[in-house]
Simulated assay, not measured.
Amino acid sequence: MFSGLVRMASTCWGPVRRYARMNKDNNNNSNNSSGDDDESGGGEDALLWCRDLEKHSYGEFSFAVVQANEVIEDHSQVETGRDATFVGVYDGHGGPEASRFIRDHLFLHLIRLAQQNGTISEDILKSAFSATEDGFLTLVRRSCGIKPLIAANGSCCLVGIIWKGTLYVANLGDSRAVIGYVGRSNKIVSEQLTKDHNASMEEVRQELRSLHPDDSHIVVMKNGVWRIKGIIQVCVVI
Rank of each mutant, 00 (worst) to 15 (best):
G95P: 12
G95I: 11
E97S: 14
E97T: 08
A98L: 06
S99K: 07
S99A: 15
R100N: 13
R100A: 15
R100W: 02
F101M: 03
F101A: 03
I102P: 01
I102L: 14
I102Q: 07
R103L: 12
D104P: 01
D104Q: 13
H105I: 00
H105R: 10
L106F: 15
L106A: 04
L106H: 13
F107P: 00
F107R: 04
L108W: 04
L108E: 12
L108M: 07
L108S: 11
L108P: 00
L108N: 10
L110W: 04
L110V: 01
L110A: 03
L110N: 02
I111C: 10
R112T: 10
R112S: 12
A114K: 07
A114I: 04
A114M: 11
A114Y: 05
Q115H: 13
Q115N: 15
Q116I: 02
Q116N: 10
N117M: 03
T119Y: 03
T119W: 00
I120N: 02
I120K: 02
S121Y: 02
E122I: 09
E122N: 11
D123V: 03
D123C: 03
D123N: 13
D123Y: 01
D123Q: 13
D123H: 07
K126C: 10
K126G: 00
K126Y: 08
K126I: 10
K126S: 09
S127R: 12
A128K: 05
A128W: 05
F129E: 08
F129M: 09
S130N: 12
A131Y: 08
A131F: 06
A131K: 13
A131N: 14
A131T: 00
T132D: 08
E133W: 03
E133M: 07
E133G: 03
E133I: 10
